[in-house]
Nucleic acid binder design. Structure first.
Length: 279
DNA sequence: ACACTGCCCTGCGAGC
DNA sequence: TGCTCGCAGGGCAGTG
């Protein structure tokens, strides 16, 4: 389940390889799913033979920006994997799309569960997407005050609000559970009931879990790989995610980690370290 | 505006 | 052994 650190790992791997290159041809093996609503011809016409100017990331979206300002929006969703391979290399399982590059290599998009997308986008569409998303967690606009303002008056569980990409971009189920645990906040706590001190602590743990995730090249539970097929190692450092409902103890206090469902997401938390109703 | 639900999709592991 | 079923969940559409 790629979140900001995983997508950033992919971006950092792709950027030095792709900038200045161009895509010669597209081969789509999961049509229309992977490219959204457009036709193959349409999508190819917008992408092929344009020089790649930048590989950017916004939240969990990867944006391959072309020299005319248009681009490609890639979302890995749950199981998407982007790799850079020699064309002679055997295709990966679950291959959905491959883009032949002008140096003979292929940018390949594999996706077991077909949730991922690789979609041509105009500069206007790139800009619209940017506008729908909240600030980048590492950017200047994501401050404790900003987070406090966005949570104020909200009755939904703080966990659900942190998953809202319009509030802050890039968090997913793993890093939200980790950040709430480190801030000692129960995931069901309504956003508006958090004290400024709690929000400030939460802001700090969000930034910190994402930094650690990037430093360890992401979490590879099952499918996630970087562009060369290498696993990340952050799964070895998670303290609460995935431990709930299996009788596993909290790594801090030893109490069994619990599992509940919030917003249709499995949620792990420690009832002792993250007591409900404390402000 | 906000809160919440269901849908998409398939491999895997648990249980019988 | 072989089947069924629940689970993993990001983003978006739809409902109230």
């Amino acid at each position: 389940m790629p979140e900001l650190p995983e997508v950033e790992t992919v971006r950092a791997g792709l950027a030095p390889e792709l900038v200045g290159r161009s895509i010669r041809a597209l081969a789509i093996t999961d049509f229309p799913g992977v490219i959204g609503t457009g036709t193959i011809e349409e999508t190819s016409a917008r992408i092929v033979d344009r020089s790649i100017a930048d590989v950017a990331r916004r939240g969990k979206f990867l944006m391959i920006v072309l020299d005319d300002g248009d681009g490609i929006v890639v979302h890995l969703r749950m199981t998407g994997v982007l790799t850079l391979d020699e064309s002679s290399a055997p295709p990966p399982r679950f291959l959905r799309l491959s883009a032949l590059l002008d140096d003979g290599r292929e940018l390949r998009f594999a996706d077991q569960r077909k949730f991922g997308r690789f979609v041509a986008a105009s500069s206007q569409e790139l800009s619209d997407l940017d506008g729908r998303l909240g600030p980048e967690p590492f950017g200047p606009n994501f401050t404790p005050d900003y987070l406090l303002t966005r949570l104020r008056g909200r009755r939904a569980p703080v966990k659900a609000l942190l998953l809202d990409q319009g509030i802050v971009a890039g968090l997913g189920n793993i890093y939200v559970d980790e950040a709430l645990f480190l801030a000692r906040i129960h995931p069901m706590t309504s956003g508006g009931s958090l004290t400024p001190a709690q929000v400030s602590e939460l802001h700090s743990t969000i930034v910190s879990v994402l930094h650690s995730g990037i430093a360890r090249r992401g979490v590879s539970f099952s499918s996630f790989r970087d562009v060369y097929g290498n696993s990340g190692e952050n799964q070895q450092h998670l303290v609460v995610y995935g431990r709930g409902g299996r009788g596993l103890p909290c790594l801090v206090c030893g109490e069994p980690v619990q599992r509940i469902v919030i917003g249709n997401r499995g949620t792990s938390f420690c009832p002792a370290c993250q007591p409900f109703g404390q402000t």
